[in-house]
Nucleic acid binder design. Structure first.
Ligand code: ZN
Ligand code: ZN
Ligand code: ZN
Ligand code: ZN
Lengths: 159, 159
DNA sequence: TCTTATTTGATAGTTCTTTTCATTTAGTTT
DNA sequence: AAACTAAATGAAAAGAACTATCAAATAAGA
């Protein structure tokens, strides 16, 4: 934890930014909730518990800054809010997500399944890949018994 | 074209909706701009050329309706607006997108590259896949010479 | 034709996010 | 240490995208 905070401190100062108390509190919340896919509002409320004086605008600014520095990732699951998650240390690429159309839960696929496909795409489309986003929409293991016709679930919420 | 409009008319009436002049004008714009990834505002402006009396709210309503019926797909490329595109006839799954971090252009991968991966995911994670979204972010063939360090481009715009 | 339900356009309202700006904080220079 | 300069913050206003409301128009059914 301390190690990671320090690492981010380095990354910030390498770009002439300071790790202010507000930024540090925000970073700690993000690390503590690594697998939570928090919205800016979520982060704001969690940071407030530690540093009640922080403003929402600062949280937005910090998230944008950390995103620019690739410390965190921006996500969009089609529910109208941007979500943020810590970028795993040394992770070249983003991991994948399983979104349940029935209960809304988001599970993670931590292994990178796209490497062979990316080689093909780079070759065939002459496109130099930097990152990717892969999301599967369907029925999670917990909802399998409940859902009769999964096809019926498709529609509005999928983006 | 007429054939496709008619097909949608069927789909609508199958769910007790009518193909009103406003809805028809919207559908035609969507078909005519099949590979354009239009925002609601884009659609609105294009429909206005044909039917100037249409209201923005009606366009939003129609897009939502067509999305619910899986006639079109909602997309999100992380630029703050929902985009819409016609669902290819009989296409089970959504196609893939190549987004250039330099020029913002969006290219299409029409073949479905994910079939083998989906089999693995369904098996390994006990997740029943209904649809997917796959986007590659990087440098398009047109920008390849211009961009020195593609890694530098990663950041804010990617969601 | 009369009745009823659907659809529409205009507009007000919401929600999420960004901008503005005066104040605070943190370095730097004298 | 005091004065100066730039960066960062919080509160509040503004902006953008989308949704809800509601009276009027349109269409379908009796
Ligand atoms: Zn579920
Ligand atoms: Zn995740
Ligand atoms: Zn390009
Ligand atoms: Zn497309």
């Amino acid at each position: 934890m301390e190690k990671r905070v320090n690492q981010i401190k380095q990354q910030l100062s390498a770009h002439n930014y300071k790790l202010t108390p507000q930024r540090e509190a925000t970073v700690r919340v993000l690390i503590e909730n690594e697998e939570a896919h928090l919205s800016a509002e979520d982060v704001y409320l969690l940071v407030k518990e530690k540093a009640p004086e922080i403003g929402l605008a600062t949280v937005y600014r910090t998230l944008e800054l950390l995103s620019d520095l690739s410390v965190i990732h921006k996500l969009n699951f089609g529910d109208g809010v941007t979500r943020y998650e810590f970028r795993a240390e040394g992770a070249e690429h983003h991991h994948h997500h399983l979104i349940c159309l029935n209960c809304g839960e988001v599970d993670e696929i931590m292994e990178d399944l796209l490497t062979p496909i990316e080689a093909k795409v780079e070759e065939e489309y002459q496109f130099q890949i930097v990152d990717h986003r892969l999301t599967f929409h369907g029925v999670c293991r917990r909802c399998k018994e409940v859902v009769a016709d999964p096809k019926k679930l498709v529609g509005a919420r999928v983006t």
